[in-house]
């Protein structure tokens, strides 16, 4: 049961060893340092993303999912946030050991990112066409005419209706969904190999969410682009992700192919999370509730962070962080009773 140490490097998916992963995060730690204290926000997080694969980093507020994304993108607010341990290698090169100049070149060109709030991410005083074209002129060295033509193509590609005529419109003249499409167009302008989407649809209406996710999915598979989908939405994950990295209080508690978490969840947290989603059976019994609230990162003790809310918690859970075990090929869980949970469907 204790055969895998938590920080053991190595491929998660059987057979993936032959081809190096697009992105490999190893034992990543992120701290926030203030005068008074250092708070671990991300602890010992490892996962990888292959080309063309959509990996969902799933978690609630304070789980460290956004910080993980920012660390990969290299846009942590330093200070107060620092990478305290681990490595992030992109196509075999360690991003953390690179000079800042090379890192900047990778950002946008090879790894790019879209954010939840598209209104504040776009500059209100420039037209969207100008903003998309500017990326191409500044980073791809295109001339004005060429950049404009390419920008129109890109806006067309992200399914903005009548793209050519809307180039001259300003961000506030677009709906939230259309702005998010503009953000996607800017993010893929330089044809990156990896896209990080931080809660890309959370601010949008449900009927629009699915449309945006479908566009993202199509672009990723057309370009063989890796996608890290940072989200709290189990529903979005179930439909669009290939694999899930479930985070709780800064740690990965379970990682598996998407169906795995729904069919044989091997961590009490993922089980409880699935149980708390309303389903027809709950009408009579009431929803299954996880007591308490996600912990303050300052208050996480030495043991399993979920133990105080866990119905299976034992004394050992409070002593040390449970090691990560492999319950099935490509399915890992950081729980002492992971195997029992996985077998008990």
């Amino acid at each position: 049961m204790l055969d895998d140490s938590p920080a053991l490097p190595g491929p998660v998916l059987a057979g993936a060893a032959t081809e190096p992963a697009l992105l490999e995060v190893r034992s990543l730690g992120v701290q926030i340092r203030t005068r008074r204290e250092s708070i671990d926000i991300v602890r010992d997080v490892s996962f990888e993303v292959a080309r063309g694969e959509t990996v969902a980093v799933l978690g609630e507020s304070g789980s460290g999912k956004t910080m993980t994304g920012h660390a990969i993108m290299g846009i942590l607010d330093t200070p107060p946030a620092y990478i305290s341990s681990g490595s992030i290698s992109f196509q075999g090169h360690d991003l953390l050991k690179m000079p800042e100049r090379r890192r900047r070149d990778i950002r946008g060109r090879h790894i790019s990112m879209i954010f939840q709030d598209s209104l504040s991410a776009l500059n209100p005083v420039f037209s969207v066409g100008f903003q998309v074209a500017e990326v191409l002129r500044k980073r791809a060295g295109m001339g004005r005419r060429e950049a404009n033509a390419r920008a129109a193509e890109l806006l067309d590609l992200v399914e903005i209706p009548n793209a050519r005529n809307r180039m001259r419109d300003y961000p506030h003249e677009f709906s939230g969904g259309m702005r998010q499409r503009v953000m996607i167009a800017m993010a893929i302008a330089l044809e990156p190999e990896l896209l990080i989407a931080d809660e890309p649809t959370t601010a949008l209406d449900v009927t629009i969410q699915a449309q945006i996710m479908e566009t993202l999915q199509r672009l990723c598979s057309d370009r063989d682009m890796g996608l890290i989908l940072i989200t709290h939405d189990l529903g979005v994950v179930s439909e669009f992700a290939d694999r899930i990295i479930l985070m709780y209080a800064g740690r990965v508690v379970e990682s598996c192919v998407t169906a795995g978490i729904f069919t044989q969840a091997a961590h009490p947290y993922s089980r409880a999370l699935l149980d708390s989603v309303p389903q027809s059976a709950h009408r009579e019994t009431g929803l299954n509730v996880i007591p308490g609230a996600p912990p303050d990162p300052r208050e996480v003790g030495v043991g399993c962070a979920f133990a105080p809310r866990c119905s299976h918690a034992m004394d050992q859970c409070l002593v040390a962080v449970p090691p990560t075990v492999t319950v099935a090929p490509g399915h890992r869980s950081a729980c002492l009773i992971a195997r029992e949970l996985a077998d008990h469907v």
Binding site: I32, R33, T34, R35, R36, I39, I41, S61, G62, M67, D77, P79, P80, A81, A293, P294, P295, D296, P297, R298, E299
Partner: peptide
């Protein structure tokens, strides 16, 4: 002045997680 700023940012990053203060 940078230290209080850092703490403010830390508070922001940590979100509203202060109920156990």
């Amino acid at each position: 002045m940078s230290e209080p700023l850092a703490e403010e940012m830390a508070a922001e990053v940590l979100g509203g997680q202060t109920d156990s203060a």
